[in-house]
């Protein structure tokens, strides 16, 4: 079991976990991920490493509760154990000596954008962090992102905080205003990454995206996470998860991510019924 050292609620559905996994903590680099099983019999699910500390042996993941596994994790507290936790998997991000970068995060993607921004900043680059949320109460890691960037831009879809609109709107203004980025890093829902890539392609700015396909082993064994990049099939788990965003077939990624949607809904429903019977409906 891998002990949860600390748990923090970032918003109503997003939680941060610091997990004791010394071997993983020692090796983790920005851009890599772990695969966990919340419980025995559970599925294997990948999560990007948001932070790690080799000294204390802790690895931080940030999880949005969307399906059964993420909600099951949500029921665990500090001191509880996660059945399995393996990593760091995938290749670390290579920023290629960027001098001025925009790091764009959508929703939960902001959590993954955070270590990327920090890494670029520590590497001496000027970093604009652009993060977007549906509304004010969903904003996460604002302080951390402010520290990890030269300038922080927050957007909300409804205008309840920061600039009203999408991250692409803010990014477009900055690019057209002469920001002079030599690198854009985009992390978030596939549709957001697709929109960012369409924008940066027009401006000829190199763009790295971090993909999140369905995985099982995370070591190249199953091929479940295959994505089409530049017309070639690549495995996100061993060839990625970062790819040149201008080469990625996002439509295929979006379709493949939805492959088990009905099963996932059924699984969640069944679990909710089960928990409701046990606890009188404590879980929403």
């Amino acid at each position: 079991m891998y002990k949860i050292l600390r748990k923090r609620e970032l918003n109503a559905s997003v939680k941060l976990y610091e997990v004791l996994a010394p071997r993983v903590a020692k090796k983790a680099r920005p851009g890599q991920f772990i695969v966990l099983r919340a419980r025995d019999g559970g599925e294997r699910a990948p999560f990007t490493i948001a932070d790690s500390d080799a000294a204390s042996g802790s690895v931080t993941i940030i999880v949005q509760e969307v399906g059964k596994t993420t909600r099951l994790l949500g029921t665990l507290g500090e001191g509880d154990g996660i059945s399995d936790f393996v990593g760091p998997l995938g290749l670390p991000t290579h920023f290629g000596g960027a001098r001025k970068a925009a790091v764009v995060g959508g929703g939960l993607g902001s959590a993954i954008a955070y270590p990327q921004a920090r890494s670029l900043l520590e590497g001496g680059a000027e970093v604009d962090a652009i993060v977007g949320f549906r509304s004010r109460e969903l904003i996460i890691l604002e302080d951390e992102l402010a520290k990890a960037s030269t300038r922080l831009f927050v957007t909300t879809d409804d205008g309840s905080s920061g600039r009203k609109g999408f991250v692409t709107d803010a990014l477009r203004e900055l690019i057209e205003g002469g920001a002079g980025y030599d690198l854009v890093v985009a992390i978030g829902p596939p549709i957001m990454m697709k929109m960012v890539c369409e924008l940066t392609r027009r401006h000829g700015i190199k763009t790295i995206v971090s993909l999140n396909p369905i995985m099982i082993d995370g070591t190249g064994m199953c091929g479940c996470c295959r994505v089409t990049v530049g017309g070639q099939t690549r495995f996100a788990c061993i060839d990625g998860p970062d790819f040149d965003g201008h080469e990625v077939d996002f439509d295929e990624l979006i379709r493949r991510l939805a492959m088990y949607r009905a099963d996932e809904a059924a699984s969640l429903e069944r679990w909710r019924d089960h928990v409701c019977r046990l606890e009188g409906g404590a879980i929403g």
């Binding site: 019999g41 294997r44 099963d263 699984s267």
Partner: peptide
């Protein structure tokens, strides 16, 4: 992953 026992297991 025991997908033949889904949804008892979590992997479809």
């Amino acid at each position: 992953m025991g997908a033949h026992r889904f949804p008892e297991t979590d992997t479809p």
